[in-house]
Design a protein around this nucleic acid. Structure first.
Lengths: 126, 126
DNA sequence: CAGGATCCCTTATGATACTG
DNA sequence: CAGTATCATAAGGGATCCTG
């Protein structure tokens, strides 16, 4: 259990503490769509429709939701042009860009170990 | 998308890009409990109850489930001692240990940016 | 002590249709 | 084009009880 008045302090962020903002961030990084969206934006700004295309399989709802969350977290900027037809561009902020290497490390590890993991699974199942 | 009928015979959560096992791994890394469990084991072998204590908030079900998945993936070993009372020790395999730096990068990023993210959220909400 | 088996509920997510 | 609104479903996860 936890103290109610812990808000007044500004302690070290502890991912092991449920309810700690840093844990929330870890969760976000782990999010299925977040990773993919940031991956696309890491290559440059993109429009909504472009994202919808490149992150294949994502529903409009999830895309909008993911982008909104990222924008709220200050990881992504949203720029709307009042034209016809409408045009909205998303881009990574410096914070968002700083996340890229981390995500890269994750996917690198995954690529490197995918083989041995598959092997281990087969052995375990057998 | 898929040409399959409404028959969902396989619980494959891969939204798209099938045939990429590394994708499965990324999802695992992103798993809320996996990250925390590996984090604890990175400091050395631990018993079931020890893990239950240190990974605050996890239920027996989730802990067992997470450990089993990690064991199947060859990231964690399980050693059961046939004593009374029972004693089971979990430890990282080399593969699992190699994951530590990656996870460390993730939580480091989270700790570093938690502040600015909170700030961004406040600004967004206001 | 370690964990399996259940039950149940909350939330996440997807499909679809609609609007500024 | 860029979303929003709504609905239905499935999965994640917690609580609890039980056993080797």
């Amino acid at each position: 259990m936890q103290r109610e008045d812990a808000v007044t302090e500004h302690p070290a962020f502890d991912p092991y503490d449920p309810g700690c903002p840093s844990r929330q961030l870890v969760d976000r990084i782990g999010d299925r769509w977040t990773v993919l969206v940031i991956g696309v934006l890491a290559e440059g700004p993109a429009r909504y429709g472009e994202l919808a295309t490149r992150v294949a399989g994502i529903s409009p709802k999830m895309l909008a939701q993911t982008l909104k969350a990222l924008e709220r977290d200050g990881l992504v900027t949203r720029e709307a042009f009042n034209t016809v037809p409408p045009r909205v561009e998303y881009a990574l902020t410096p914070s968002g860009a700083s996340l890229q290497p981390v995500l890269l490390a994750v996917s690198s590890w995954a690529r490197e170990h995918a083989g041995s993991v598959l092997q281990a699974q087969a052995a375990y199942d057998g």
